[in-house]
């Protein structure tokens, strides 16, 4: 099952650091839209931050998601 991870403000606002979902051969966009039904905050997060798949930021949400994928919804960074 793909995992969706949350960090920093997003983690605090959603009250979880990871959600596992059933997703078979659907796009990242569809997966995020489905999840937004249970967690409306996710739609806001995607607009306010970045989405990473397997530790790379992705700009095109049309990519297909595999069961082994690790997705992360990330606020803009503030390290250093």
């Amino acid at each position: 099952m793909p995992k969706i991870k949350f960090f920093a403000r997003f983690k605090e606002e959603i009250g979880k650091d990871v959600i596992e979902v059933q997703a078979d051969n659907i796009s990242l966009k569809e997966l995020l839209e489905n999840l937004s039904k249970d967690y409306p905050k996710i739609k806001e997060f995607v607009e306010e931050g970045l989405v990473a798949v397997n530790h790379e930021v992705v700009n095109d949400l049309k990519m297909k998601i595999k069961n082994s994928d690790e997705i992360a919804i990330l606020p803009f960074f503030s390290g250093g």
Partner: peptide, 14 residues
């Protein structure tokens, strides 16, 4: 390195 770190590395400050 420090400029790129701020742009690319997923670290957050509270």
């Amino acid at each position: 390195c420090i400029d790129e770190l701020k742009k690319r590395v997923p670290i957050w400050k509270k």
